[in-house]
Amino acid sequence: MNLVTVSGPPSSGKTSVILKTIDSLKKQGLKIAVAKFDCLYTDDDILYEKAGIPVKKGLSGALCPDHYFVSNVEEITNWALKNKFDILISESAGLCNRCSPYIKGIKAVCVIDNLSGINTPKKIGPMLKTADIVVITKGDIVSQAEREVFASRVNTVNPSAIIMHINGLTGQGSFELSTLLYDEALNIDSLKGMELRFPMPAALCSYCLGETRIGESYQMGNVRKMKVED
């Protein structure tokens, strides 16, 4: 089985891109399942179910969603292996632009959209910079010039990635993506011992543990102060 990790900022079009791409993958006779990770709320599992795609949903709630992802990806993978799927696609939103759920040896796709602003590629960390394929969406509503500038900015921060344009509404471009996802050479039978491409950021301070009061005397653990000059 192949695992494919898809990640991207909220509302960039991940679910639409995945749904359209699965349409094409199914036509190639592949059995697909999806694991949807989110933070507080998602309806996307219903969209997948409606499309007849087996889906598992995980809400991280009070936990950091990316940490939650890593803690659960092995179990989800085992579930997909047991059910003999050909591809398991994991979908997670990169909420702070700092984490990325990508794993060494596992195909990584980042979805970002043209509307997110020209400086966005600079602001996104490993989620964009270490992806194998970058999918750019919402190209149908911005000008050609903006599309070209945006794609060239993405290329500057991740020159080795394949950059694709997909229209999540019509599915244009999703067939093409589908041809790049499944690779027999990347089949796995377990995630045990595999490694993240990039470490998650450290964050363990009193606020992680439920502190609500403001003030220096309540701050413990990994706390850092801004330099505020006069």
């Binding site: 149908d140 010039a145 500038v149 900015r153």
Partner: peptide, 24 residues
């Protein structure tokens, strides 16, 4: 591509916009 649904979304003047494209 050019379509009727396309809009400019950047907050730039015409000159700066074309310059940005030319730069890239």
């Amino acid at each position: 591509q050019l379509s009727q649904n396309m809009n400019f979304v950047m907050d730039l003047s015409v000159y700066d916009f074309v310059e940005l494209h030319a730069e890239s």
